[in-house]
C-alpha cells in the first residue's frame, strides 16, 4: 500500500469511528442490524427487534446492509465480530444472545430503568410509575 492510500484508509477509518461514536449516543437505545425493524433480514436481528418490541422500547436502528463501511466499522468500534449490536446509553451491551439472556433474567428491565425507560414488561413498579404520572 502506498503511503497516500494508507493515509486515506486511516482517515476513512477514523471518520467512521467518529460517525459511529455519534450514532450510538443519539438515542438511549441504538441498534445496528441487518434490515430494518419492519423487515429484518437476519434471524438474530429479528430476535432483537422482537425483544425490544415486547418491552415497548423506542430506539434508533441502523441497517448495516445499506452501508458496507458501517457494517465493518461497527465491528471495529465495539470489537465485536457479529451483527446485531445493541447499545444502551451509548454503551455496547451485546448481541442477540446477550439481549435474550438479559430479557429472560430481568436485567434488561433494570438496565432500561437506569436510563429512564420504563419497560412495558416491568412489574408493579412500572404500573405505579404510570399511575403517578397520570
Amino acid at each position: 500500500m502506498t503511503p497516500f492510500r494508507l493515509y486515506k484508509s486511516i482517515r476513512s477509518f477514523s471518520t467512521t469511528v467518529d460517525k459511529i461514536a455519534n450514532l450510538v449516543k443519539k438515542n438511549k437505545v441504538v441498534v445496528f442490524m441487518k434490515g430494518v425493524p419492519d423487515s429484518p433480514k437476519c434471524g438474530f436481528s429479528n430476535a432483537v427487534v422482537q425483544i425490544l418490541r415486547m418491552h415497548d422500547v423506542k430506539y434508533d436502528a441502523h441497517d448495516v446492509l445499506e452501508d458496507e463501511s458501517l457494517r465493518q466499522g461497527i465491528k471495529d468500534f465495539s470489537n465485536w465480530p457479529t451483527i446485531p449490536q445493541v447499545f444502551i446509553n451509548g454503551e455496547f451491551v451485546g448481541g442477540c444472545d446477550i439481549l435474550l439472556e438479559m430479557h429472560k433474567n430481568g436485567e434488561l428491565v433494570a438496565e432500561l430503568k437506569k436510563v429512564g425507560i420504563t419497560s412495558a414488561l416491568s412489574e408493579n413498579e412500572g404500573s405505579q410509575e404510570k399511575k403517578s404520572k397520570d
Binding site: 441487518k34 434490515g35 429484518p40 433480514k41 437476519c42 434471524g43 438474530f44 436481528s45 429479528n46 430476535a47 446492509l65 442477540c96
Partner: peptide, 13 residues
C-alpha cells in the same frame, strides 16, 4: 435453536 435465516447473508438477498 437459533432463529431461522431471513436472507441478509451476502448475495442471498
Amino acid at each position: 435453536p437459533s432463529p431461522p435465516c431471513r436472507g441478509g447473508f451476502g448475495n442471498c438477498i
